[in-house]
């Protein structure tokens, strides 16, 4: 009886793990002797994972944070352990709103936020529409489902480089359709990868690549919504929109929370798409945070500054994620 009570409370469960349970006295004498050996096994079991985690994840992360506080450039790259410690100098340089670098950083962060909201918003809407559309049974459903997933299945590089060719001003497919065939823009061939248009083009490519993921996740979530709920609602006279708002949305809420978080983090850190579309230096109008950090680190070999920007990004995303997880995601234990 007391046993089941203990199981429900994690604190007590931990206690029982370290204490030999007095109730199990049936097996008497061997128990005290087992005590020291017993404590090694769980640690030994997780040791390989911990070591690998430290080596692959934690180590480089700490190193990255440390780089933000030193002056690391080509002069001391080979001997980076002895690079001079400069305290917060890199942060001051990167954050000073008066300086060219600081201005670029702040405007880039703002632009990246706008980018993230737009890309994630549209991807979610498209994914949701696709999932709802395909949740009803009709002929050709399987084909459409496969078709929708193609952008997600293609290697990101291949998809993006195809877009780069299509957006080419002189002989790209986009201008061939819009200008040569449809005669839009008064026969003026717009540039899609230069100037202001480049931001929109990059958003297009990212939505194209991201929305199948939202579609896949939401489709899985929708399959857990029992059909009789809809039937009951229909009998009560609920319109399709009402069904969507009061049944579908609340039912997929837990999946939605995680989905939006993951998509936002991916999009905020987006690097591949601008790098393949524009090369090492993005147009000013389309520079995101990750390419900016790359430009500062590798374009100018100023690893300290790149490191400082990365640390700021890490902290900002960390705080935003914690806030989001506490506010939006279901709390473990409360509802299950």
């Amino acid at each position: 009886m007391s046993h089941s009570a203990i199981q429900n409370s994690p604190a007590n469960a931990a206690e029982t793990a370290t204490m030999p349970a007095p109730e199990q006295s049936g097996k008497g004498p061997e128990l005290p002797a087992r005590k020291p050996r017993r404590s090694f096994l769980p640690y030994g079991l997780i040791m390989p994972a911990v070591i690998l985690e430290v080596l692959i994840h934690i180590g480089p992360m700490i190193l990255g944070v440390w780089i933000a506080f030193i002056s690391l450039n080509q002069l001391n790259l080979t001997n980076w352990l002895n690079a001079p410690f400069v305290g917060l100098q890199n942060f001051v340089n990167g954050l000073n709103p008066e300086s060219t670098i600081g201005q670029a950083f702040f405007s880039t962060v703002g632009r990246t936020m706008l980018y993230t909201v737009t890309v994630v918003g549209f991807s979610w809407i498209l994914g949701m529409a696709g999932a709802v559309f395909l949740s009803s049974n009709f002929k050709g459903r399987a084909i459409l489902r496969t078709f929708f997933l193609v952008p997600y299945a293609l290697p990101a590089y291949v998809g993006t480089i195809a877009w780069a060719f299509m957006f080419n001003q002189r002989d790209g497919a986009v201008n061939q359709i819009l200008v040569d065939t449809l005669h839009l823009f008064g026969d003026e061939r717009p540039f899609w990868l230069l100037g202001g248009n480049s931001f929109g083009a990059m958003i297009m490519v990212n939505i194209w690549q991201l929305w199948p993921f939202a579609f896949l996740m939401l489709m899985a979530a929708l399959q857990n919504v029992p059909n009789d709920v809809y039937e009951a609602a229909a009998i009560d006279g609920a319109t399709l929109w009402q069904q969507f708002r009061t049944i579908t949305l609340p039912m997929v809420q837990p999946a939605n929370g995680v989905l939006l978080l993951v998509m936002s983090l991916w999009t905020f850190n987006q690097f591949n798409i601008p790098f393949v579309l524009f090369g090492a230096a993005s147009p000013k109008e389309a520079t995101l945070v990750s390419p900016l950090i790359y430009q500062n680190s590798f374009g100018s070999w100023n690893f300290g500054l790149g490191g400082a920007m990365s640390v700021l990004l890490l902290i900002a995303l960390f705080i935003a994620s914690i806030f989001y997880i506490r506010m939006v995601l279901p709390k473990g234990g409360d509802n299950d």
Binding site: L41, G44, M47, I51
Partner: peptide, 14 residues
């Protein structure tokens, strides 16, 4: 045998 395996894995990883 489980313990031996664990110890081996840990050593190998290290």
């Amino acid at each position: 045998p489980l313990k031996v395996l664990t110890a081996l894995a840990a050593t190998a990883t290290m």
